[in-house]
């Protein structure tokens, strides 16, 4: 399988990365080189093989359902580019 320019632009939009025409053209070549390389996986017989979900067999740890953390609003917004009283500020999303 290979991708064309249109697909690359669509994927870039899905990934929320702005691409110029030139970027998209370069990426098309690079992505096709990588997709060409991974193509060889199709020759592997995977009939009856379960896809891996966990690399080491382990039971999912569960925590007690109690409050152990919180009251850290100042810490949480401390690194944000724009805030107002412990809220993240973003451009208007609803007209």
């Amino acid at each position: 399988m290979s991708v064309d320019l249109q697909t690359v632009k669509r994927v870039a939009h899905l990934a929320r990365i702005a691409v110029s025409e030139e970027d998209a053209e370069r990426m098309t070549g690079e992505l096709n080189a990588i997709l060409g390389f991974v193509e060889q996986l199709n020759e592997v017989d995977v009939a009856g093989v379960e896809p891996m979900t966990s690399v080491t067999p382990m039971e999912m740890k569960k925590r007690q359902d109690v409050v152990t953390d919180g009251s850290k609003a100042t810490d949480i917004v401390a690194n944000a580019p724009a805030t107002d009283e412990n809220f993240f500020l973003v451009p208007k999303v609803v007209e």
């Binding site: 399988m1 991974v38 996986l41 199709n42 592997v44 995977v46 093989v49 379960e50 896809p51 891996m52 979900t53 690399v55």
Partner: peptide, 14 residues
């Protein structure tokens, strides 16, 4: 075609 196939191959590698 890609992700599921790769995870199956991963099982075989292991």
């Amino acid at each position: 075609a890609y992700y599921l196939q790769a995870q199956k191959v991963r099982t075989l590698i292991k």
